[in-house]
Design a protein around this nucleic acid. Structure first.
Length: 631
DNA sequence: GTAGGGTTAG
């Protein structure tokens, strides 16, 4: 192991050296750019950029609300002004829909606020819209609603829709179409869904416009209202063939829902309907399979992509490689690397990152060194992730000093800064090797770089405290964590239980588990109670173990395996009275206990000739619907 | 809109 570690370290140093040239180059370029900007060369560029600047609705379906081009914009603006303001309008005019409706409609284009004011004034004056031309009236509402959405007054828009339903002609599918598209293009996704929900209360409303369903699907994905996607998709399909973008959005849904089968079906459907499949959709599908541990399906997909030609890219290979890495299939990671090289797909930093990490996770340090060398030979430059992966490799191998050397290298270079994950690994490595002081200094250095400690950083330090049985430092750290607004998790509580057990402060562990999850608004996982109960039993604190068992019951009945674990531990430690008590409580609470686990307890009690205990166990078993085996 | 590195658990 030692030579491999040295080799990697020397490789890193030389890599940094070769990087210097690139960095100098980058710095020169940057300076040139800055000069160019000053001399006005960038002026043209800025202009170019601003023309390109559009609402970022890349995945959003096309289509926008049409303003209804009835007359020129300039003449509208001229006609739109009211000489005496809204207050100066003759109430008789206000009550006349033939005057009011065109006025409001026109005002909407240039002076939305005045339009709304005028409409409200007419409303107060008692205008009766029922006598207005239906189309004109509908169009007025459309103009007002879209104007309020455009100016970000969504509450006003909702009020208008309510009035439209109550006093006007009702919400038409055309109006819904315009608002849906407008909201989507303005990235008002939740609002879009809310308006749809309001409109859909009218069961007569028919929506045949496919792009409405496209927008709704997109909004549901963006707002993570995943349960709505399938319905929108069905409606979309019923309005005709979904577009490439629609499929892309549905594939995003399948990914978010972890539905790899659906993801594959969608790709299949796209092929059958001759819909173009872009690489992002393909890659998302590959990633969905990988996330669901269906690596072989992902591989099939890559092969199909390679056959079509042009769609597979480095991301496809990297995603699949990650899948192999996750499954511990290192050889296939390397095969895939070979394959992409053969197919002239250029490996990226991510490619090497995945390969390196997989070697490290499979404890193949020498192999990692080879990858590193190849990476350098191919001119791949280091970045924070690659450095961090190396640090992880050294830390994993027990070479904390070497990990720290890489860190010092990063610090002295100043161009590739360590981040939260780098520090997290370093802090844990130091904690694990009993260097709590060094870990705390790293945390200070981290804060000095402007990074804010997150949950994992705090958990790692708490883990260090547990190892050193330093309850005082742990309490300070936990307080700092909560005070700085970092919410603890089940992992945190689990570490705290370990800490208190290590310090033989079980009472404090019980107290902590009783109060902290609720205080921090975290739902405690059942296994926290199991963990603590086990700690109590290990210390032969039967009374306390049953107390924890009762706390556990407050959160619902226990699984048979949770019971099995506790009962097994009792038998192992010869705490049969505690086992009997747990069985009785389980019977009372109507929990599940396996026959074998209960039998084991009964047998142990007989062996020890504990008559009273035996009886308690047997009757608890009968209450649990189990058969005590004959003596 | 898609890809890599971090914490718990007997």
């Amino acid at each position: 192991m030692e030579p491999a570690a040295d080799m990697i370290l020397s490789l890193v140093s030389s890599c940094v050296y070769s990087l210097r040239v690139e960095l100098t180059f980058a710095a020169v370029l940057g300076a040139l750019w800055a000069v160019g900007r000053k001399t006005g060369l960038a002026g043209a560029k800025t202009q170019l950029a601003s023309t390109r600047k559009r609402p970022p609705s890349s995945g959003a379906p096309a289509g926008r609300a049409k303003p209804g081009d009835r007359s020129g914009r300039a003449s509208d603006a001229a006609a739109a002004t009211l000489p005496g303001g809204v207050g100066g309008v003759d109430p008789k005019l206000l009550r006349d829909p033939r005057w009011l409706v065109p006025q409001v409609t026109r005002l909407c284009r240039a002076e939305a606020r005045t339009a709304l004011e005028l409409y409200r004034a007419a409303h107060r004056a008692g205008v009766d819209l029922a006598s207005a031309e239906r189309d004109e009236c509908e169009y007025m509402f459309l103009s007002m609603v879209t104007a309020t959405i455009r100016t970000g007054q969504l509450d006003e828009a909702m009020v208008l829709l309510q009035e439209l339903r109550r006093h006007g002609p009702g919400i038409s599918s055309a109006l819904l179409g315009s608002t849906t598209k407008l909201c989507t293009s303005k990235q008002l996704y939740a609002e879009c869904l809310a308006i749809f929900d309001f409109a859909a209360e009218d069961k007569e409303l028919k929506i045949a416009d496919r792009s409405v369903w496209s927008c709704l699907l997109f909004c549901a994905i963006e707002t993570k209202e995943l349960e709505r996607c399938k319905l929108f998709w069905r409606r979309l399909e019923s309005c005709g063939a979904p577009s490439c973008k629609d499929y892309g959005n549905m594939i995003r849904y399948a990914s978010a829902a972890g539905d790899w089968k659906l993801s594959l079906e969608l790709v299949q459907q796209m092929r059958q309907s001759d819909t173009e499949i872009d690489s992002v959709s393909y890659n998302t599908c590959v990633a969905t399979c990988v996330a669901a541990d269906r690596v072989d399906e992902a591989r099939t997909l890559l092969d199909e992509m390679a056959e079509c030609g042009g769609v597979s890219d480095a991301i496809t290979y990297n995603t699949l490689s990650k899948g192999y890495a996750k499954a511990g299939r290192l050889e296939q990671c390397f095969e895939l690397f070979e394959l992409m090289t053969q197919r002239r797909v250029e490996p990226t930093q991510v490619t090497y990152g995945i390969l390196l990490d997989c070697c490290i996770n499979e404890n193949q340090v020498a192999r990692a060194a080879e990858v590193f060398e190849q990476m350098k030979a191919n001119g791949c430059v280091m970045n924070t992730v690659l450095y961090t992966t190396l640090i992880k490799g050294f830390a994993r191998d027990g070479h904390v000093d070497k990990a720290m050397e890489v860190y010092e290298l990063m610090r002295s270079e100043r161009t590739i800064p360590p981040d939260l994950i780098t520090f997290s690994i370093l802090i844990k490595a130091n904690c694990d090797s009993g260097r709590l002081g060094a870990a705390l200094r790293l945390k200070e250095a981290m804060l000095g770089l402007g990074l804010k400690a997150d949950e994992v950083i705090f958990n790692n330090i708490l883990g260090g405290c547990a190892k050193e049985a330093d309850a005082y430092l742990a309490k300070c750290t936990y307080k700092e964590m909560v005070d700085s607004g970092v919410r603890p998790s089940n992992a945190t509580f689990s570490i705290l239980i370990r800490l208190y057990a290590q310090c033989k402060l079980l009472d404090e562990a019980v107290d902590m588990l009783r109060t902290e999850p609720a205080a921090q608004r975290v739902a405690p996982e059942p296994r926290l109670y199991s963990q603590l109960a086990h700690c109590c039993l290990r210390e032969r604190r039967g009374k306390q173990a049953t107390e924890v068992y009762l706390m556990m019951l407050e959160h619902g009945p226990l699984t048979a395996s949770a019971h099995g674990g506790m009962l097994g531990m009792c038998v192992k430690l010869n705490m049969l009275d505690t086992a009997a008590e747990i069985l009785s409580m389980a019977a009372e609470a109507g929990g599940r206990v396996d026959q074998a686990d209960a039998d084991q307890v009964l047998k142990a009690a007989r062996k020890k000739r504990k008559g009273q205990c035996e009886e308690t166990i047997a009757s608890a078993m009968r209450a649990l619907g189990l058969r005590p085996s004959p003596a």
